[in-house]
Nucleic acid binder design. Structure first.
Length: 608
RNA sequence: GGCCCCGUAGUGUAGCGGUCUAACACGCCACCCUGUCACGGUGGAGAUCGUCGGUUCGAAUCCGAUCGGGGUCGCCA
């Protein structure tokens, strides 16, 4: 090794020891006759001192050194002189008096500061990601990610899980997200698809008798990006045989509560985790991924206003809808302008309008619709929502599907505006009993809400065909702070039931055979009852890291347009390479390509 | 794919029709400085304002297109 100690580990106990360190020049403070260098390595940093009398040659080297130079120093750990200790540094009680130093490598001035947490343009950060990762925040996130993964492996190993790798080159499936395709050289015109998840493989492993499987699995989806969506991302994929929902949920609760205690002990993680059905979650929060930190719930106000003079409410109720709303704590300070903005948001989200009622501190009521209601009714509305003076009610009258969506959007907005979400709390919850199917208006057919292999409840199997919308599935989500962390289900393990579901989804026999024949066949060979879940690793780490964007916890993420500014991927390939995989570009693709190439050439010219 | 925001020295920002011969902070370079730790001091270099086109007597500033980054809806579990 080029060093005897890691810089960040030196403590007062090391005083008197001779050490060799190697690392980067984090910062240099040149006092003319004395030079301090903060030497940084992966472990942290320590101050090293260059005295011209004690080590003239080293002092000379230190004069030449600049930020991010790679430096090796020999010296003695000494206790700092009283009054010069730095309590802000872990190593602040000591410093290293340098005897000799070697510049292992020079460094150009970095394109953005490494020793400072400044905001830097996303594209620049990604272009020099290896420098971005040197920065404290990113380095910390990488370590956190490692610790999360290490904990997961240890945890699952201790519970008898087997880590199995599954293919990256697989079969394309038209269901779900768009596939990334890989052309086959050997089979002209045929394509592999990168896995959207190892879903089918893990079920086949259950048929194989593995019983407890997991994998830190890379998944690929060719869809547009978001803060919480990258084209390739990682899941903790797991599956168990001979289990009930509770077994999976209990396992996940143990895992996540344990993880929180291990990697985020400063965060408050209430347990046991809240459990509620999808129906209950939609009723109380208008969402299947509620943020429980807000402390706000939706109330049904239909009966209170059923006989009111207010026609909007009455018409909505007559049309089979309901009147629902929630209280905004302290919302009485909302100016007219703010209420109008909320109404606009409600309309954008699909509501016909928004009724707001402010209960002023002095007991008076302010609302555009106050005149339609008796005083008792207004009081009853407040009571139903748990509102008191100083609060505001937001009310939507519509079909449940609309009011849920709108109230969810409104709730998130007011929570954001009013900082209702405690950043120090991880409010986990399990949402269970999701609907089996949802109506795909575009395709004019039913589609699986979770995925094809999700089992319906036994008692819902019969009504599945006659009323698909009412059938409940044995699917569940783990959510936290208003975000979906992972979803899973108990699977269908009998061929007969799977065939019925496929028929319901309008897949005819031969099509089903072609696309899922291997699964149908596998199920005829004694597939055990099984189920699993797949929490998103990136989201999990982001959650514990307090990061909003999963790019902050991925070493080399892609931009919003799925490019990598560091390597330049994706890029064109030579004609021979294309020919080898039997691919010809369309004229449009070629035109777009040459246009891009010209742009790139200009950029290069400008650089020089 | 739709809509929205952003694009000015290495970085982050200011400037938003003439006074910009483009400002500030950090960084960078040089010199000075033996106890700093976001060291300090003095001086200096560095951007024609993403690109192309237009409006105008005059454009960093207005308009259009285009490229890049971000957000959001669609899409995606």
């Amino acid at each position: 090794m080029l060093r005897t100690h890691a810089a960040g580990t030196l403590r007062i106990e090391h005083a008197g020891e001779a050490v060799t360190l190697a690392g980067w020049v984090h910062r240099r403070r040149d006092h003319g006759g004395l030079i301090f260098v903060d030497l940084r390595d992966a472990s942290g940093l320590v101050q090293v001192v260059f005295h011209p009398e004690d080590a003239p040659e080293a002092f000379e080297a230190a004069s030449e050194v600049r930020s991010e130079y790679v430096l090796q120093v020999d010296g003695d750990v000494v206790a700092r002189q009283p009054g010069t200790e730095n309590p802000d540094l872990d190593t602040g009680a000591v410093e290293v008096a340098v005897r000799s130093a070697a510049i292992l490598n020079a460094a150009r001035t970095p394109p953005f500061p490494i020793n400072q947490e400044t905001n830097v343009d996303e594209a620049t950060r990604l272009r020099y990601r290896y420098l971005d990762l040197r920065r404290e925040r990113m380095a910390r996130n990488l370590v956190l990610r490692h610790r999360v993964i290490a904990y997961m492996r240890r945890f699952l190993n201790d519970r008898g899980f087997l880590e199995v790798e599954t293919p990256v080159l697989g079969l394309a499936t038209p269901e779900g997200a768009r596939d990334y395709l890989v052309p086959s050289r050997v089979h002209p015109g045929d394509f592999y698809a990168l896995p959207q998840s190892p879903q089918q493989w893990k079920q086949l492993l259950m048929v194989a008798g593995v019983e407890r499987y997991f994998q830190i699995a890379r998944c690929y989806r060719d869809e547009d990006l978001r803060a919480d969506r990258q084209p390739e991302f990682t899941q903790l994929d797991l599956e168990m045989s001979f289990v009930h929902e509770d077994d999976i949920l209990a396992l996940m609760e143990d895992l996540y509560a344990g993880l929180a205690a291990e990697v985020a002990p400063d965060l408050d993680t209430p347990s046991p985790f809240v459990r509620m059905t999808y129906a209950e979650s939609m009723e109380r929060y208008g969402s299947d991924k509620p943020d429980l930190r807000f402390g706000i719930e939706i109330s049904d106000l239909t009966d209170i206003v059923r006989d009111s003079e207010f026609m909007v409410f009455r018409r909505a109720i007559e049309a089979g809808g309901r009147v629902r709303g929630f209280a905004v704590p302290g919302g009485a300070d909302t100016p007219r302008r703010g209420a109008d903005a909320l109404e606009a948001l409600a309309k954008e989200s699909g509501a016909g309008g928004l009724v707001w009622i402010v209960y002023e501190e002095d007991g008076s009521v302010r609302s555009p619709v106050a005149r339609f209601f008796e005083e008792e009714t207004l009081a009853a509305l407040a009571e139903a929502c748990g509102a008191s003076n100083g609060d505001m009610l937001l009310i939507v009258a519509d079909q449940d599907a609309v009011s849920s969506r709108v109230l969810d959007v409104l709730m998130r907005r007011v929570a954001e505006d009013r900082d209702l979400a405690d950043p120090n709390v991880l409010a986990f919850a399990f949402i269970t009993e999701f609907p089996m199917f949802e109506w795909d208006a575009q395709g004019q057919r039913w589609s699986a809400m979770h995925h094809l292999f999700t089992a319906p409840f036994e008692e819902d199997v019969e009504r599945m065909e006659e009323d698909p919308a009412a059938a409940r599935s044995r699917a569940y989500d783990l959510v936290c702070n208003g975000q979906e962390i992972g979803s899973g289900s108990i699977r269908i393990h009998r061929r007969e039931l799977l065939s019925r579901v496929l028929r319901l989804l309008d897949l005819d026999e031969s099509e089903a055979e072609e696309r899922f024949g291997h699964m149908l066949e596998a199920f005829t060979f004694g597939a055990p009852p099984h189920g699993g879940i797949a929490p998103g690793l990136d989201r999990t780490v982001a959650l514990f890291a307090g990061e909003r964007d999963i790019r902050e916890v991925i070493a080399f993420p892609k931009t919003k347009s799925a490019t990598d500014p560091l390597t330049g991927a994706p890029a064109s390939v030579h004609g021979e390479q294309l020919a080898e995989v039997h691919i010809a570009l369309t004229p449009e693709a070629e035109a777009a390509q040459s246009q891009r190439d010209e742009g790139a050439r200009e950029e290069v010219t400008n650089d020089v």
